[in-house]
Every structure is written in C-alpha cells, then in structure tokens.
C-alpha cells in the first residue's frame, strides 16, 4: 500500500497539480491581504467600531472559505474520479494488479495518497489565508484549526465519493456526478434551513435525509461556525424575533452552532463505509 501512496504523491508532484495549487493559493492570499487592508482602512476612516470590523472580516473569511470549499470539492472530484478509472482505461492497472497486490490495498493506497494531498493543500491554504488576515487586520477567527479541519473533511468526503464512482464509471462521468452531488448537497443545506424557518416538516425531512446521505453541509456549517466571532450569534438573536432568527439561520453563510460530536462520528463512519463499498465494487470489477 505504501508503494501506491508514494506513486500517488509522485504523480501529483510530477503532473504539477501541487505546484498549480500552491501558486494559485499564494495569488489568492496576496489578493485577500490587499482587499482586507483596503476594507479595514476604509472602515477606520469612517469610524466603524472594531466589533463591526471584526464581524465584517469574519464574513469575508467565510466567503473565502466558501470559495475554497468549492475549489477543494472540484479538486477532490477531479483527483478522485480518474484515480482508478483512468488507469483501468489506459491499461496501467493490468500490470499492477497482476502483482501480489490486493485490490483493497490499491483503493486504500489511492485514497490515503489523495487524502494527504487535499488535506495538506487545505492546511496550506488555511495557514496562508488566516496568516495574511492576521498580519493585515490583526483578526483571527475563534477556531481557525477547526475551520480548516471541517473544510478538509468536506474535501475528503467528496474525494471518497469520487473514488467509489471511479471503480465503476469512466473518469469524466465520475467527476461530473461528483460536481452535481456537491451542488445538490449544498442546496439541500440551504433548503433545510428554509424548511426549519418556515416550519415545513416534509421538506425538512427530505433535506435532513440528503444531509446524511452525503454529509457535506454539516461540515460546511462547522467551517462557518468556526470562523464566526462569538458576538455574531448574539447580534443575530437581537436582530429580530425567533422566526426571524430562524430565517437568518437558513443563510448558508451563517451557523448558529457547530456540528455535534455524534455527527462527526457519523461522518467518519460514512467515509469508512464508502471505502468498504469502493473496495467491494472494485473486487468485482473485471479488468
């Protein structure tokens, strides 16, 4: 399995995937720093309070996190989708699987290698973005590490889906399905909030099921919650009555609380089960 992990990492390096990520992220971090410095300077000139500035910066960070969430989702989908399928189509796996290598080792090796790449990239992007923000504005969100972990978790979940699909579908089809699933999951999260705000139990049941079928939205809410200053929830409650607050909570860029431990355990179990499915599917695959 270590050989497969190493080959996966070498492939990412040699195909310049990692370098492309690093360079683009550095550009985004530089632009973030410049944008935040303009924003903070303008706020100070207009006498905006530091509390409001903090809330403003947190909203910018949440939007940036959303952008990275999308980038990571796409990266995970397009790294994972061809991981098995393209090597089957090209014939590379013919010689590899004739070796004394279990198919489960190939799946787990690919998953671990690709997970290392997306988690490493998420950590790097998180450090760069939050570091630049701290440097320029002196603001650091309350739970920066958790925010990055939740973001990486989303990427790993989608990567796992891509790998499962890769054992059966051509790479392009698997990637396309992943992108659609990501969009549906995000939409289910928004609609779930709407269902709760307007007390629509049927819609709520469907969106809750969708959230558990593909546990991306819960992790996204965790990222948002980790980036919000503690004052924002209090201010939101002050802003209106209970129904109004519930309607605010339908906003995909707001989270009144982080995901419970039980949900996180569910996500871990979900990923493990998806890997079992991937292995079972690949074992049955004719090469």
């Amino acid at each position: 399995m270590t050989t497969i992990i190493r080959l996966t990492l070498v492939e990412a390096m040699r195909r310049r995937i990692l370098w492309a990520f690093v360079v683009l992220t550095a550009v985004i971090a530089a632009l973030t720093g410049w944008g935040l410095s303009v924003l903070v300077e303008s706020a100070h000139q207009h006498g905006v309070s530091s509390l409001q500035v903090g809330i403003g910066i947190s909203q910018v960070l949440i939007l940036l996190a959303f952008m990275f969430s999308f980038v990571l989702a796409m990266s995970a989908a397009f790294l994972g989708a061809p991981a098995i399928a393209s090597e089957l189509e090209s014939g590379i796996l013919l010689a590899v699987l004739a070796r004394p290598l279990r198919r489960s080792s190939l799946i787990l090796g690919r998953w671990l290698g690709l997970s290392l790449i997306v988690v490493g990239y998420t950590a790097l992007a998180g450090v760069m973005e939050l570091g630049v923000t701290k440097l320029v504005t002196d603001y650091l969100p309350p739970e920066p590490v958790e925010a990055v972990v939740y973001l990486a978790g989303q990427a790993v979940v989608l990567l796992t889906v891509a790998l499962v699909l890769s054992t059966r579908l051509p790479g392009i089809a698997a990637g396309a399905v992943c992108v659609v699933l990501f969009g549906l999951s995000w939409m289910a999260g928004v609609m779930g909030g709407v269902a709760a705000a307007f007390n629509l139990p049927e819609l709520s049941a469907i969106t809750s099921a969708a959230r558990y079928l593909l546990p991306l939205d819960g992790l996204w809410r965790g990222t948002v919650y980790s980036l919000e200053p503690p004052s924002i929830a209090f201010l939101t409650q002050l802003a209106g009555n209970r129904a109004g607050a519930a309607a605010v909570s339908a906003n995909p860029f707001y989270a009144p609380s982080g995901p419970p431990v039980g949900y996180l355990a569910y996500v871990v179990a979900w990923v493990a089960l998806a890997l079992v499915v991937a292995i079972a599917s690949f074992r049955r695959r004719e090469i």
Binding site: T3, L7, R14, G91, A95
Partner: peptide
C-alpha cells in the same frame, strides 16, 4: 506479465517504474 495493452506511468522514469514493480 506483459499485457497486450502495455502502458506504464508516463510521469515516472523507466527505473522508477521498475522500482515500483519490484516493491509490488
């Protein structure tokens, strides 16, 4: 085994392909 459809990792050097197969 030499497959009819012989393809090896294009991003590796020949010695690296052989190294990987030696490990496997």
């Amino acid at each position: 085994y030499l497959p009819e459809l012989f393809r090896y990792q294009s991003w590796l050097r020949a010695r690296e392909v052989l190294g990987a197969h030696s490990e496997l």
